[in-house]
Design a binder for these strands. Sequence first.
DNA 1: TTGGTATCGATACCGATCGTAGCGCAACCC
DNA 2: GGGTTGCGCTACGATCGGTATCGATACCAA
Lengths: 186, 186
Amino acid sequence: MTRETTSARPPGRPRAGIDAVVFAATLSTVHELGYAGATMDRIAAAAGVAKTTLYRRWPSKGALITDCLVDRFGPLPPVEGGRAEYLAAAIRLAAAKIAEPGMGAAFAGVFVDAVSDAALREILSTRLQAPYLRTLQEALGEPEDRILLFVDITIGTLLHRMGMTGAPMVDADVAELTAMILRHFT
Amino acid sequence: MTRETTSARPPGRPRAGIDAVVFAATLSTVHELGYAGATMDRIAAAAGVAKTTLYRRWPSKGALITDCLVDRFGPLPPVEGGRAEYLAAAIRLAAAKIAEPGMGAAFAGVFVDAVSDAALREILSTRLQAPYLRTLQEALGEPEDRILLFVDITIGTLLHRMGMTGAPMVDADVAELTAMILRHFT
DNA sequence: TTGGTATCGATACCGATCGTAGCGCAACCC
DNA sequence: GGGTTGCGCTACGATCGGTATCGATACCAA
């Protein structure tokens, strides 16, 4: 992430490797002040970076948050065991990531902004949703609409709990949610 | 709604009965321009009302949207048949209401605003969530945490679909969601 | 009719926020 | 050194939520 590829280095001053510190500052700011309270000025200050630098790399606040989510979610782990184990692992991973400080609020916020912002919806779709949908579809071998329903139920439930209570879902409820989904999708 | 109670009318010029037209203007504006695009100025213009009149009646944009949702959702229908029928009816009602123009975007928007706004969270909780939770708990006779999980799954899934695709969930998927929930909660 | 009260519409305004423009400087390559 | 590009900084435009103010209006009571 912080190193350029092996191809010829482009001319001019190279970009500083600030992605990691910016992502960390973004999540901690969202965690402390909520999605709306995490302004670009505050995120820049927390990262020790000029606001113009942020806008030089990300076209909008939503795009920054989305990249932050992509970086933090990381790739889905490889398939191990059967379909049931894979589904359970995916739900557990989603619950754990959304429970991390700032992740739930950031996810929900960018998600709602996308409802009324076509450009952001495009970014969110191509950078976050599409890769996971493709991976899930290949791993499970199910038609796309079934995968979409699975994602709606899993992510939707976890985010709704996060928004309602302000706290992530407890393990017992995650287990119950997992049991219900497994019984339906296997 | 437009008539005062039988008690003595308070002094001064009586309020005009504008709730219905304001609610309709709010939903149609949200439907056309999204939650963020539905500014108070535009809502007021669409309703043919001054912006100051809106703020004289609702303390904030979130409060207006919340009252709009409460008005549109209406009360849960009375219990008929067994628990399974009641659950299915509740899911069907939620899906139908969220599918109405502007309702999904309005719901999701106020929901996320509430995450970082304690005053709005209080309004949302007392005016929208609490009444439905109480009704469901009385009708189903289940502990509160189980009701909360049911609401998370139902509303969360429906809103997530709305946010992802911009369109409400199709009937086939609502039926599948209902089947899954019924198998787990009965 | 007169006075009191509260609402309405209109306008202007404040503060916060997203996002942009321009500038001087720094870092890299040739 | 020259060329190119990123960085920090300041300032700015535009928009929006929310407030203040003012004259006009609708109702009640005396």
